[in-house]
Computed example of a mutant assay.
Amino acid sequence: MTTTGAQTILYPVKDLEKAKALFTALLGVEPEIDEPYYVGYVVAGQHIGLDPNGHAKGLTGPTPYWHVEDIEGMCRALLAAGGETVQEIQEVGGGRRIASVRDADGSLLGLLQDP
């Protein structure tokens, strides 16, 4: 199993409009995705996402999402290595699938597989 790196960072937000204003000012670009359920930016190949439902999904702060080729296999490997499932694998649109695992120290590891 391989990863192409942590190319996506998701931020759980409580007020999407305030967060969008702040990140637009910080990044200097308008969002590429601007929906009530998610706002996403791409800057220098890095995807930054604002998730108003992130806290309900177990996100406690900014979470790196590691891009993987086999999300099922990577989840099994991380659980076998002592990780704990936080968010089961789910499709989030366009064939993209995500999941998250907590390591022994409580840090969240997001996993993302594109179609």
Rank of each mutant, 00 (worst) to 15 (best):
Asp51Val: 02
Gln90Trp: 00
Asp51Phe: 03
Asp105Ser: 10
Ala99Arg: 04
Leu50Thr: 10
Gln46His: 15
Val92Ala: 02
Arg76Pro: 00
Leu112Arg: 07
Trp66Ala: 15
Pro31Gln: 04
Asp105Tyr: 00
Ala19Val: 05
Gly93Val: 09
Gly49Gln: 06
Gly106Lys: 01
Trp66Glu: 15
Val42Trp: 04
Thr24Ile: 11
Glu32Gly: 15
Pro62Met: 14
Ile98Ser: 07
Leu16Ser: 02
Gly83Arg: 07
Glu32Tyr: 07
Leu109Gln: 09
Val101Met: 06
Thr85Arg: 13
Val39Met: 08
Tyr41Glu: 10
Val42Met: 10
Pro52Met: 00
Asp105Gly: 09
Ala56Tyr: 05
Gly40Glu: 13
Ile71Met: 04
Thr60Trp: 06
Leu27Trp: 02
Glu30Trp: 01
Ala25Glu: 12
Gly28Glu: 01
Leu26Lys: 08
Asp114Gln: 08
Thr8Cys: 00
Ala99Leu: 01
Met1Cys: 06
Gly5Leu: 02
Ala44Asn: 10
Met1Asn: 02
Val86Asn: 09
Leu26His: 13
Leu26Val: 15
Asp15Cys: 11
Met1Phe: 08
Gly45Leu: 02
Gly28Thr: 11
Ser107Gln: 12
Lys18Val: 01
Asp15Tyr: 03
Pro12Ser: 08
Asp103Pro: 09
Asp70Ser: 04
Glu35Phe: 12
Gly94Asp: 03
Thr60Asp: 07
Ala56Ser: 13
Leu78Glu: 12
Val13Pro: 02
Arg102His: 10
Gly73Trp: 06
Gly73Pro: 03
Val39Arg: 04
Glu17Met: 01
Glu91Asn: 12
Pro36Val: 01
Pro31Gly: 09
Gly73Ser: 06
Lys14Pro: 03
Gly61Gln: 12
Trp66His: 15
Gln87Ala: 13
Ala21Asp: 08
Tyr65Thr: 12
Ala6Asn: 10
Gln7Ile: 03
Leu111Asn: 07
Lys20Glu: 13
Lys18Leu: 10
Val92Ile: 13
Ile89Asp: 00
Gly49Thr: 12
Leu27Pro: 10
Gln46Glu: 06
Lys18Gly: 11
Gly28Pro: 04
Glu69Cys: 01
Leu27Ala: 09
Met1Leu: 14
Tyr37Phe: 14
Ala80Asn: 09
Gln113Phe: 08
Tyr65Ala: 05
Leu109Val: 15
Ile89Phe: 03
Thr3Cys: 11
Thr63Gly: 08
Gln46Asn: 14
Gly93Tyr: 10
Met1Arg: 09
Gln46Trp: 11
Ala81Tyr: 01
Val92His: 04
Gly5Ser: 04
Ala99Met: 00
Leu22Met: 13
Arg76Thr: 09
Gly110Leu: 08
Gln113Asp: 12
Leu27Asn: 03
Gly93Phe: 13
Gly49Ser: 12
Leu109His: 15
Val43Ala: 15
Val68Gly: 13
Gln87Phe: 02
Glu32Pro: 04
Ala21Ser: 04
Gly94Phe: 01
Met1Gln: 11
Asp34Gln: 11
Val92Met: 04
Pro31Asn: 08
Gly5Met: 03
Ala6Ile: 05
Ala77Gly: 12
Ala21Ile: 03
Gly83Glu: 03
Gly45Ile: 14
Ile48Ala: 12
Asp15Thr: 00
Gly82Arg: 10
Asp51His: 06
Ala25Asn: 12
Pro52Lys: 03
Ala56Asp: 13
Thr3Leu: 13
Asp103Ser: 06
Val42Asn: 14
Tyr41Val: 07
